[in-house]
Design a protein around this nucleic acid. Structure first.
Lengths: 337, 337
DNA sequence: CCCTGGCACTCCGTGTTCCCGAGTGCCAAG
DNA sequence: CTTGGCACTCGGGAACACGGAGTGCCAGGG
């Protein structure tokens, strides 16, 4: 049903529409791409593509516009991820150079990605659940109050203020700190609950009430509260895209951490890059937008995800190339630090 | 030149225009506000106000719209800050209740403010330079690498990875940590440089190279690098306001930390609330927007600033009330924790 | 001296009409 | 199966008219 020429026509339609943002007609296609056939033939092919649901005409006498299904076919079979130019590569390297703490890496990455793709960039902080505990610190703030600082091997630092049930002396704090570190140092976050459960036995009875409070906070912080942080940048790029309708919805979605999480997080296949096009996206208000996402991590394990969100009408090959490249570079940075 | 009735007319114009978003004419004014005079009289007053530059008509035969100068007069002399309703007060309290760490306080505050005012809310993290050092922690990561964690009395935590010039043993790390804490605990950030400068003398010569590296990072982190963090929320509210033109510029400005800093930071008078209206604002692209900002802090010293950014055509009394209230509540929270 | 009603005038915005052009679908011929 | 031709459709822009809101000004009255 869809022979090679029809696919070529679809590819041409997508490419032209992406670059001109106007419905593309048969004559323009015949002129700009050398398909070797006349406009009339292209019209027949277009009719077939429209029957298949790959393209759509806004009005009877207008050109054709790709549908979500058309973009999907284009992404899956008609395009190749476009590698970055040398200049862009260098830009990434200089942008992410130097020993940086995690906050800075994430902040710079999200800006870089926004600048590179001219879309809204979204970066998820490396997931806690896949990292290990590097250090636990307890800092007395007042007689019955301490600050708990948890440091992971990915450089992430979590701090919590804890109110204690009773007064605690400094030397007992030191002791507790030593015990905690001995038990938890290098412990994978997945194993924290069982490790923590076994701890009270090693402590003297008088320390247990305080320890119980602190331990429960540790558990809550590291395990239950792995609502992971997400940042975005480049919202101004939305205004440039002719988003007149629905912009409000998009901005709202961007400020909903939960929505963003799920957008990036729901990997639906095993490949490196996830592309979700228009209505494939489960959230109303994000119809009309596409998401290109990739996992990134130090070494081979995926720690978190990053990606961009832009109009359905985006340059997929270029965008996918940029997302993939940034994900790889960030992975290298994380592995190296 | 501007008698009481003319001022009343200006107030009425501002109020009507804010609520209707349409140029307001003499007849509508006479109908909706009981000024006790006829439309013709109001027309005369309007002519005077226009001569003074307080109002402006978009076209001949259109109603009048307040100018920036008009809003300024309104804010300074014709309006009173409107206190929050009981419901709103309770909303703030529940929203900010509980012992929270600084990140959470700031995140919740910015969302609260955005929701309350229906504008874009901007909150600056409490300034480092006005707080004191609570604790310094050094965590060995590798033979020549440590993580430095600095905790201030406002609950802020800064972490940096430091590469050392030579291998350092754990007991020397402990010693250094003890010395640092003894010297810096409770030290105001303003005094950190001199305190740090005096430190090397107290250390054994073999420790000095490592100490010098660490100290320079402390200095850099705490003092030189007080590019303070700013967060915003509620960008979706921009789309609701009929911002068609310039929205892109506004979004861009919002992502520029530096611009935001200066917007909030440049206090131009001693009063609690700073209002900057339209062109009073030094940044192109933010013409057409007004900023209402306030300082907040624990106790009486101002630690940082927060505020909202919205269309020039905003309800100043209500917005100012909300900003002031939130600033006060956050201050209380910070003082209490 | 200030307020008021009346009046002529000015435009904005809206609705209508009209036309042009791009693009299509179909058909018959190569 | 491809191609040129042809009639048809429709969206969008230009031209136009018009109603209404609002103004400025002026003369009369308290």
């Amino acid at each position: 049903m869809l022979d090679d020429r029809k696919l070529a026509v679809l590819r041409a339609i997508v490419e032209d529409y992406v670059s001109t943002n106007e419905p593309v007609g048969s004559k323009a296609l015949a002129d700009r791409h050398n398909l070797g056939v006349s406009p009339a033939t292209i019209r027949n092919d277009m009719a077939a593509l429209e029957d298949g649901g790959y393209i759509h005409q806004p009005h009877t006498s207008a050109g054709r516009v790709p549908t979500d299904k058309g973009y999907r076919l284009f992404v899956d079979r008609l395009s190749q991820v476009k590698p970055l130019s040398g200049a862009e590569r260098r830009a990434i390297e200089t942008f992410l150079a130097g020993t940086l703490d995690l906050d800075e890496i994430v902040t710079r990455t999200v800006r870089l990605l926004a600048q590179l793709t001219r879309h809204v960039a979204v970066v998820q902080y490396p997931s806690l659940t896949r990292s290990t505990v590097r250090h636990v610190e307890i800092v007395p703030l007042a007689e019955t109050r301490v600050m708990l600082v948890l440091i992971t091997n990915t450089g992430r630092v979590e701090q919590r203020v804890v109110d204690l049930p009773e007064v605690i002396a400094d030397d007992r704090v030191s002791h507790l700190r030593a015990v905690l570190n001995a038990a938890l140092d290098g412990c994978g976050l997945a194993k924290v609950p069982e490790t923590v459960a076994a701890l009270p036995e090693r402590l003297s009875p008088e320390d247990r009430p305080v320890a119980a409070t602190i331990l429960s906070v540790i558990l809550e912080t590291l395990v239950e509260r792995h609502e992971e942080k997400i940042v975005f940048a480049g919202a101004a790029n939305l205004a440039a895209a002719d988003f007149t309708i629905g912009l409000r919805d998009v901005l709202e979605a961007l400020e909903e951490q939960v929505v963003l999480m799920r957008l990036l997080g729901e990997t639906d296949d095993l490949s490196e890059l996830t592309v979700r096009i228009g209505s494939e996206n489960p959230y109303t208000g994000l119809r009309g937008t596409s998401i290109v996402a990739a996992g990134y991590g130090a070494g081979d394990k995926e720690l978190a995800r990053l990606g961009v969100l832009g109009p359905t009408r985006m340059d997929y090959p270029v965008t996918m190339g940029a997302v993939r490249a940034v994900a790889r570079y960030v992975g290298q940075i994380l592995a190296g630090s």
